[in-house]
Structure formats: C-alpha cells, structure tokens
Nucleic acid binder design. Structure first.
Lengths: 156, 156
DNA sequence: GCTATATACTTGCGATGTCAAAGATCCTAC
DNA sequence: GTAGGATCTTTGACATCGCAAGTATATAGC
C-alpha cells in the first residue's frame, strides 16, 4: 500500500470511510431497510422542532444536493415515514415532516444503529481520543454554510 | 445539528468525508477527467512492481468490490492508461498494467492532486496532528485482508 | 480421471447521487 | 406594477458502485 508520509492520513481517511461505511450501511440495510443517508435525515428530523425541516436546510446539513434530497425523501415518503408540508409564508419552500410512523421507525432503528456505530467505530477509541478525532475532523471544510438559515417567518 | 456526545466523532467523520471528497473529486474531474477512485487505482499501479497488479489485489487495497474494479478498469482501458495482461501460471487471473500513457497521465495528475489534497485536507493539521489522525483512523477495520496475498508463482 | 469446492473475473440489474435545466415563487428597484 | 434576479424544488440524463448470478479456471479428494 502506498503510504507516503504526507498522504498517509488522507489515504487512511478514504479507506476507513469506505470500510466502516460499507459495514454499517449493510447492517442498517438488512436490519431496517435504511440507507446511512436515510438514517441521517431521520435523525435530523427527529431532533428538529416539530419534527420538521425545510428541504434546503436538510440538504445543507446532511451534505446532499437539493436534488439528492428530493429523491431521498421520495423514498421516505413512499414508506410513509415523512410527509410534505407547505409553508404559509413562502410558497417555494416545502417542509419535510416526520410522521408518527417515522418517529416509531427512527426510534426502532436508532437503538441498534447506535450500537453498531459504537461497535464498528466508537469502541476503537477512548473518550479522549474520540474528542481529539472530532476536533480534528471538525476543522475540515463542512461546505459553505452561509448563515442565512435563521428560521424566518415560520408559524405553521 | 445533532451532536450528541458519543455520535459527534462519527457524524463529523461522515460530514467531513462528504465535503472534502466532493471538493477534491470536483477538482480532479475538471482538471484531469479522473475520479478519486481512478486516481487511487493509478497510484497503486504506479508504485507497484512492474506497474502491474492483480485485479483482486487491486480491489482489496482500494476497497472496491470485484465488479467495481472491472468497471473502473474498463474506463481506464478505454482511455488507454491501463491494459490487461494474462498470467502464465494461472489463467483465471488478469493483471492490470499501467501503459506508458498511463504513467504520463498519473504523473501529470499527481502534482496538482497532491497540492489539492494538501490544501483542502492536510493544511488544516500540524505534522503531529496528521500522525495522530492517521494513527486513529488506522485502527478502524480496513476490510478483512486475509493475508493470502502472497505473490505466488508469478514470473511472466 | 472426475467430481466438488474455491477463486478470479464479468455482467445484469438496481440503488444512490450529481449536474444541468426548468418551473414556481419571492424580492427589489424602478 | 413590472422587470430582473435570487431562491426552492423537481426532473431527465448520466455516472458510480454494490449484489447476485454466471462463466472460467484451479485445486483437492476420491
């Protein structure tokens, strides 16, 4: 394996992502029929106020493109875990809202998936190392989050 | 953003990969018409003895499936950067060999891509941090590399 | 030699996700 | 109020990649 000094960290980063992701994705798929991205979206919606988020914001936080979110949510909507909601103050925006079934689904998936993450990923590090890792990774560019995301006129 | 303590590192890992990967992949694509995986494969071949590697081994080190490698190499072959070579001692195996054009292509791509990696990824860390990161990431499961990869009767 | 199993590779199909373009709505300036 | 531009979303065309299945070859057991 080519591990020139400077590239070492980058290569390992790529490999680690491929391996861990494949493992976790497989488990999540067989146990719950969800993608990692599906789960990621469900997490965000679950913890969002009212279980609801604008699609654009969702796209920005899970790092998908707008069209990516459309297609992903298509799937979750077909499964009945998410629905659309119109925005009174701005007819362009559509909210993605977790349904009751979606809440249930997420809570079911959460338990095993967290355990899987812990087993495949987290358990390899001490708490201190985990923080270090999080801090280091946090320095990487997480997309240009223009802070225009101030929840504007949103009432229902 | 949901950043529960235990999941923090994992979430950042996912996000960081998505963001950095997208950026680097975009640059590599527009500058050289290559995928990150394409480049990864070219690196491995470039530094391999004789610029040649069995497809299975290639698949294992870059963490693609066998079919993934087939299709990826299809592309590189069509572009003339890689060719197939039969193995005398075992008719099942096919080698992937870098052509002269492939060597040139890689050397051209390497320069700018390394700089891009450094800029987007590496420059955010000190040397010490880089080692720490590499060490931590290195603990993650890098696929079950069954050590059967001992270069057997290969002379051709 | 012959069958059984393992390994190397390819192919069909489906899933995911991107980009570019288009439609709808909003906002600002005049 | 109207033109111009920005923002939100969807859609079509396309690329990548995994899984399952199939083919070809090798190896071990009989």
């Amino acid at each position: 394996m080519v591990t020139e000094p400077e590239l070492g960290a980058w290569i390992r980063f790529l490999r680690a992502h491929a391996a861990v992701t494949r493992e976790l994705s497989g488990r999540l798929e067989t146990q719950h029929g969800l993608t990692l991205s599906d789960f990621d979206v469900l997490v965000q919606l679950y913890y969002a106020p009212d279980h609801r988020l604008r699609r654009v914001d969702l796209a920005r936080t899970v790092l998908l493109t707008a069209s990516g979110i459309t297609r992903l949510l298509d799937g979750l909507e077909r499964s009945g875990w998410v629905t659309k909601a119109r925005c009174d103050s701005d007819a362009r925006v559509t909210y993605a809202v977790l349904t009751d079934a979606g809440v249930t689904k997420f809570e079911a998936a959460q338990a095993t998936h967290r355990a899987d993450i812990e087993q495949v990923f987290g358990s390899r590090f001490t708490d201190a190392e985990r923080s270090t890792l999080a801090e280091l990774l946090g320095r990487l560019p997480l997309a240009e989050t223009s802070p225009a995301c101030t929840g504007e006129g949103e009432t229902a």
